[in-house]
Computed example of a mutant assay.
Amino acid sequence: MYELIFTVCSVVIGASCREANPIQLDEHVGAIGCLIASQIEGAKWVEAHPNFYVARYTCQPAKTYAHT
């Protein structure tokens, strides 16, 4: 199982970026599926948060992300 982490930046406050909470993907989704899901989930995230854009995404095994 993988999780998807977006680094998002504000369009209102310049150079203000942060990592969003990880998105848990289904158990059957592998590394390639995570890359494909990044496009879909990124579009959904930006639609729900119009003052931000996704600057970067990371796919990694679930439960390895340490949110700081």
Rank of each mutant, 00 (worst) to 15 (best):
M1H: 15
Y2S: 02
E3M: 02
E3C: 08
E3Y: 04
E3L: 04
I5K: 04
F6P: 15
F6Q: 05
F6H: 05
F6K: 03
V8T: 11
V8H: 01
V8M: 02
C9L: 10
C9T: 09
S10N: 13
S10Y: 03
S10L: 04
V11E: 09
I13Q: 14
G14D: 13
G14I: 10
A15L: 15
S16H: 14
S16N: 13
S16M: 11
S16W: 04
C17F: 08
C17P: 15
R18K: 13
R18M: 13
R18P: 08
R18H: 14
R18L: 11
E19W: 05
A20M: 04
A20H: 02
N21D: 13
P22I: 01
P22M: 01
P22F: 05
I23W: 07
L25F: 09
D26G: 15
D26I: 08
E27M: 12
V29C: 12
V29M: 13
G30Y: 02
G30H: 11
A31Y: 15
A31N: 13
C34S: 08
C34V: 05
C34E: 00
L35P: 01
A37Q: 09
Q39W: 05
I40D: 11
E41N: 09
G42L: 01
W45V: 08
W45T: 06
W45G: 10
V46R: 14
A48P: 10
A48M: 05
A48C: 07
H49Y: 09
H49D: 12
H49F: 00
H49V: 00
P50Q: 05
P50K: 03
P50E: 07
P50A: 03
N51K: 07
N51Y: 13
F52C: 03
Y53I: 07
Y53P: 01
Y53V: 09
V54D: 03
R56D: 11
T58L: 06
C59Q: 01
C59G: 00
Q60M: 11
A62G: 15
A62K: 14
T64D: 05
Y65Q: 10
Y65L: 06
H67N: 11
H67W: 02
